[in-house]
């Protein structure tokens, strides 16, 4: 009975995983053929990989620019979010009462709002303030929805920390800057890193907010690039090898990181 239940559970997990990964496998398989439409097999070839890297067609060149934009925007936005969010978390930790509640409530709003509301509201803000849409508006918008995740990842680290350590550093003659750099930041680093990774992921995956805050600036990220492809009725073929490579890269990184921490845990147990 017990082992029967375990088999059913395992089978269920695998079934869901197969369904979840089917579209990605589909993209990967059809990245090795040259046909324009996704489900069309016209023989095995590396041609799409080749034209992706050489930027042979004008579309594949625009695609590489979109990829670069996506990564740059995600990096800049999540770095700003990490600094802003960490400082905010330290501040919130030291606040109390109504002030603390207010800022925590405001911090929750971007996470609760659907993307389209965040996008529309920021669109109206930039219209209202007469700010021309471009990199700055996209990055500011991304910082808006990324920072709450940093705050929520750093705050628990502060509550777990012994508050006397920071005071001790000050008593022993460290300047507040030194105490921040040498004491606080190392203690908060795990929360800052997971906050950064989460912010980076949210930024990479965003479509709606970028769509509304890029306006007619002509700046494309992967999401808006794919969307305009969809509207035109066909995907740029080089997207298939690009997505396949991104997926493999992330898979390898995640497996390495997780297996390593898994091994560390095992060693500690022994």
């Amino acid at each position: 009975m017990k082992t029967g239940g375990r088999i059913v559970a395992k089978a269920y997990l695998w079934l869901i995983l197969i369904v979840i990964y089917a579209p990605i496998a589909f993209i990967a398989v059809f990245s090795f053929t040259e046909a324009k439409s996704l489900g069309n097999w016209t023989g095995f070839t590396f041609n799409l990989y080749h034209s992706l890297f050489t930027g042979a067609t004008s579309n594949s060149e625009a695609l590489l620019v979109a990829l670069k934009n996506t990564v740059v925007i995600a990096l800049v936005a999540s770095l700003i979010s990490t600094v802003l969010g960490t400082l905010a978390a330290i501040g919130i930790y030291n606040l109390s009462g109504r002030k603390k509640k207010t800022i925590q409530f405001l911090n929750n709003i971007p996470m609760l709002n659907p993307d389209i509301i965040t996008g529309v509201s920021l669109f109206l803000l930039f219209v209202f303030l007469h700010i021309t849409k471009g990199y700055t508006t996209i990055i500011l918008a991304h910082v808006t929805f990324c920072t709450p995740y940093v705050v929520l990842n750093v705050l628990p680290k502060l509550t777990q920390m012994n508050p006397n350590i920071y005071e001790a550093a000050l008593d022993l003659g460290a300047t507040p800057m030194q105490a921040l750099r040498k004491v606080l930041v190392p203690l908060l680093r795990p929360g800052m890193i997971s906050g950064f990774i989460l912010a980076f992921t949210m930024s990479l995956d965003d479509f709606a907010v970028t769509y509304f805050t890029a306006g007619s600036s002509g700046i494309d990220t992967l999401s808006t690039f794919i969307y305009s492809d969809v509207r035109k009725g066909g995907l740029t073929p080089e997207l298939k090898p690009m997505m396949t490579l991104i997926f493999l890269l992330v898979l390898v990184v995640l497996l390495v990181v997780n297996l390593r921490s898994f091994r560390k845990q095992k060693q500690l147990e022994i």
Partner: peptide
Amino acid sequence: LFILPMWINALMRTMATAEI
């Protein structure tokens, strides 16, 4: 493994789903 697909662009995955 259950959150990994989120790293592949959602619109791209949706296109592939529709194509399947």
